[in-house]
Each structure stands twice: as C-alpha cells, then as structure tokens.
Design a protein around this nucleic acid. Structure first.
Lengths: 164, 164
DNA sequence: GTCGATCATTTTATACTTAAAATAATTTGG
DNA sequence: CCAAATTATTTTAAGTATAAAATGATCGAC
C-alpha cells in the first residue's frame, strides 16, 4: 500500500481546510482574551477597551499625536477616533489643540489626570495578561511571537496584493 | 563579568513585558486579517462579517439551533444575536420557529436561499484565508495551531479562576 | 400543586464601528 | 498665482456590541 498516494487522495488540490481552522482558532483565542480584558477593565476601572487602547497609544508619546496617527495605529476608522476622542476630552482624560501650521490637524494628548489613571490601569492590565498566558513557557512565547510575525507579514502581503 | 546576573538585573521580578507584547501581536494579527475578510465580504458579496459568522454557525448543523447556542458559539451577547437574527430573517436567509415543548426556545436555521448563498461565500472565504496564510509552511501552521490551543487553554483557565 | 429559582429571550440605554459622503485646509503642477 | 488633487477631520446612516433590566416560561423542591 502506498501511503503517499493515499494521503494525496484525501487532500484535494484545493483543500484549504488547515488554513481555515488556523484562522478560526486565532479568532477564538483573540476573542476570548479580548472579552476577558474587557470585563476586567469594566469591573476594575469602569473603562471600556477602546478608551483604554486609545490612551495606551497616547501614553507612548510625550507630546501627543494627530487623529490620523491614532486611527492608523489603532487600525480603526477616522470617524471612530473622532467619537472616542470627543468622549475622552469630555471626561478630562485627554486634550486637543489645533496645529499652528496646519489648521486641519488636531494634536491629541493625555492630560495629567489621563496619564495618571492610564498608568494605574496599565499596570493591572499587564498582570492580567501575564496570568492569561501563564501556562505558556518562555519558549512557547518566543515561538508564538515568531510565527505570528510571519503570519502578520503574510496577511499584509495578501492584503497589499489585492488592493494593488 | 557575570552575564547571568546582568540579565537578571535587567528583567525585574514582575516584568510581564513579553506576555504583553505577545498579546499585542496576537491582536494586531487578528485585527489585520479580520479587516481583510470584512472588506472582501463587503466588496464581493455585500455582506457583513457578523452575518457571515452567524450563517457559518448555522451551516454546521442540519436542523438549526437556539439563540443561546448561537450566542455561546459566537461568543457574543444574547441581545446581539437577537438583532442579527432579526435582520437575517428579514432578508430571507434564515427562519425561526418556536419550540413545541418549550415556548421560551426559538430554533433558528438557514433557509434554502440562505444555505445556498452561504456556501458560495464560504468557498471564496476559504480561498481568501488560504492566501492570507500562504507564506506559512505546513509545519508553521501545525505549530501555530498547537501553540494557540495552549494559549486558549491558558486563557480559559485564567478566566475561570477569576470568575470562580 | 405552587412558590422560588432558573433559564431563554428581548428590551433598553449607551457606546462602538464602519463606509461613504461632506467639509475644510493645504499642497502642487502648470 | 490658481485650479486640481490631496489630506485631515467630521458627519451621517446603518449596523454591531455590551451590560443590565425586564419578560415570559419551565423546573424543582416541598
């Protein structure tokens, strides 16, 4: 009996089942963790995940960034950022000022309050994430990082090819 | 010079940076692919991702399932499913009937039209996914599957421990 | 049998999200 | 300089999402 030809007979030329299963597993994993983080943020700090994410982007820089920068970094639409920023200005976590040189541009940055609150949340957040991945060895994590980087590159290539 | 102690000095006892970076990479990867799939579905079939996902769940079974089943499988809230189902009934893709034995329960299933349309979409969808992951070798995919399964288990353990 | 607990679903209120169109400001090629 | 293209942001409309409360139905212990 020829095992190779058997194997080939089972796998049709256009069988993309393994990729699909990979995608579903990736999605399940992310949704699961995202839901967990969302719950923790709400329960512990009464803050939503999108607000936390926006503040996280702003916390990386000292002097603020534009709405476009924010929407690119967060990988969400412009209109989405407009609304989020509005509510965070309202609650006193960020402030906005119009550029001196280009009146289309708005610079957004954390207020003192916003940065202080974010730092507190970020510290807890990091612990939750560490616990969520606690069963993974350092080697597992390294491998996952490597493979996800490869997957990301592949997806970007695919998206680019389609748009081109 | 003692390299080990140097390394330890840099990594504080509570440094959970690698887990955080892993989470951000996982999230980026998923968001990227999800956006790509969303665009393709809209452009090619004028359908949204949540609708596609709901139909995908229903396509797995012959005789339908309840709203609760749906919300659990899709990992979204009950109210969310209510709205999605409403719109898909409206468009003729699914139908609903109340259980004979338990009048609280609604069984949802694909209509003939719904199943036919879903199958067409699913075939294309599978090709898009295959292309998105095309740079990954079969071994990469196996490894990712394994590590994501481990991550999923870890996240579930963590979530369960918190709720308990 | 019936009261209380539980369960399935819907409703409500609010927030988030997108795509696409609109607005407003700047840049650029001729 | 000036029209056309580009860029940054906002607005709009529709849909997606959550949490929490409400509703309606069934189950279980007594």
């Amino acid at each position: 009996m020829n095992l190779d030809s058997e194997t080939k007979a089972v796998e049709l030329p256009d069988d993309h089942g393994t990729e699909l299963r990979l995608w579903l597993r990736l999605l399940t994993c992310t949704t699961l963790i995202e839901g967990e983080v969302r719950s923790q943020l709400r329960e512990t700090f009464d803050v939503t995940l999108p607000r936390f994410d926006l503040m996280a982007q702003l916390d990386k820089v000292a002097d603020g960034m534009t709405l476009s920068d924010l929407s690119k970094r967060m990988m969400v639409s412009n209109g989405n950022v407009t609304g989020l920023v509005e509510r965070l200005v309202e609650s006193g976590h960020i402030d906005r000022r119009t550029s001196e040189t280009d009146r289309r541009v708005q610079f957004i940055r954390l207020t003192k309050l916003g940065r202080a609150e974010f730092r507190k949340m970020a510290a807890e957040h990091e612990k939750w994430i560490a616990d969520i991945f606690a069963d993974l060895s350092p080697k597992d994590i390294r491998e996952l990082m490597r493979l996800l980087a490869k997957a990301k590159g592949s997806a970007q290539r695919s998206a680019k090819a389609r748009t081109a």
